[in-house]
């Protein structure tokens, strides 16, 4: 039998365990990172609450795959429609989850997706209407097992 190049001993396992504990914690985004991202997109333009409905579980057992559905109340006509929708997560390594561009051809400004969440946090959505006005909504989600490092 050939000698193995790597030996898994009790000692190496313990060392690996300690290394994992001592390793610097991964930097996570926070509410400030989301604000900074929004400021970059829309400067200090005021945002109104409402018109956005977030559908997400209050408790997500598996952070690897958390369902999210967002719908924005809009007639989706040429004159009055949702142009963009941004989804942010304030406790992930990166604050932005996804951004969408709608057209009046959509008929309805709504999306559904599955996301990875590293920990319990708040999901923030911002919608920009065709007249430039901004709306926002948020919802908290409690994550049992984080899906960050996977």
């Amino acid at each position: 039998m050939q000698p193995r190049s790597v030996k898994y001993t009790r000692r190496s396992a313990l060392l690996a365990g300690f290394a994992a504990i001592l390793a610097p914690r991964m930097a996570f985004a926070d509410a400030a990172a989301v604000s900074a991202a929004l400021k970059q997109l829309y400067a200090d333009k005021p945002m109104a609450a409402g018109r956005i409905k977030l559908d997400l579980p209050a408790i997500a057992e598996n952070g690897m795959s958390v369902p999210l559905a967002v719908s924005v109340d809009s007639p989706m006509s040429e004159q009055d429609h949702v142009k963009t929708l941004h989804v942010f997560a304030d406790g992930n390594p990166l604050p932005v989850v996804a951004s969408y561009r709608f057209t009046p051809a959509c008929g309805r400004a709504a999306i559904a997706i599955r996301m990875r969440l590293a920990q319990s946090q708040t999901i923030i959505c911002v919608a920009e209407m065709s007249d430039g006005s901004l709306f926002t909504a948020k919802a908290a989600v409690s994550v049992t097992v984080g899906g960050c490092s996977v």
Partner: peptide
């Protein structure tokens, strides 16, 4: 942050 095997749904008139 988009999960593996991404699912995306949306609407069309």
């Amino acid at each position: 942050a988009v999960a593996a095997n991404p699912q995306q749904s949306f609407y069309f008139k």
